[in-house]
Amino acid sequence: MLKVRGLTRRMGENQLETINVDIERGTVHAIIGNNGAGKTTLFEAMSGDYPGKGSVTINGHPVSSVKGKEQFSYIPQTVTELDGFSLRILHKLHKTHDSMWREDRFQTLIKQFNLPMNKQLQIMSIGMKQKSILALQLSRDTPLLMLDEPYTGLDMEGQQILDRLLLQHMDASEEHAIVIATHIADEVQRLADYISILHDGTLSERVEKDELQRRWQRIWIEERVEGINQAPGVVSVSSTRTQEIITEDAEKTKAWLSERGVMIIKSQSLKLHESIPHILKTGVSA
């Protein structure tokens, strides 16, 4: 549904280099990267707010066109343009001018998040401001949600509510999709189907989340084996009484070990919070 082709954008020290990505309907796609990797630069460009070179279309419509804007809701990481306004004014604006607006949703969200209507956004706490932006954007009935670190500043109750809202969005229609920027492994574990890694301004091919967990494993073996550091897939080896191996390709590593008759004591899949930091260091291998 979202097609990004040859997107290039320079932003301070960040340079995005010919980004290509497809977000498929029915899927949640996480863009992960360390702080400063350029996630926000990418989202600003994808949303059409600060277009770079290249093309971004949603369901065939250019992202900056009126038709395009009806296809998505966007939670930016920082919003300063709205600081001087209260929810009362922003609500009125959407209600009168936004063809995607769903008043019933807004009323529910205002209650759920317990938001004040008359306070200016700039004097709200970070969490409350985030909830206000979420309430405004998630009241729009659009197939795609573009979310740039949407959990930032939310208290635990707010996080739970957002989890539920995202689930509802995906369950509401097979045409719906989410693209979310995050550097928090737990969010990826809870939400994502596909993962792309932003590293040095380039975006990796997407990988299916469960494929990562199939490939990245911890393997314990009984004895020291010659050449284990160079075995296929092996990322690190540490030895105490048993040898503990981290691999990014369990199948290959295990085949290598079995050729040498090495007994595997135990192996287990790595959780994403363990594998992702490794991947962010080196990028994804094919």
């Binding site: 689930l167 369950d171 809870r190 939400l191």
Partner: peptide, 16 residues
């Protein structure tokens, strides 16, 4: 549960 709800519960993808 829907495939999406089950995936969220288990921390896996809807493909699975």
């Amino acid at each position: 549960p829907s495939i999406r709800a089950l995936a969220a519960q288990l921390g896996c993808s809807v493909i699975t």
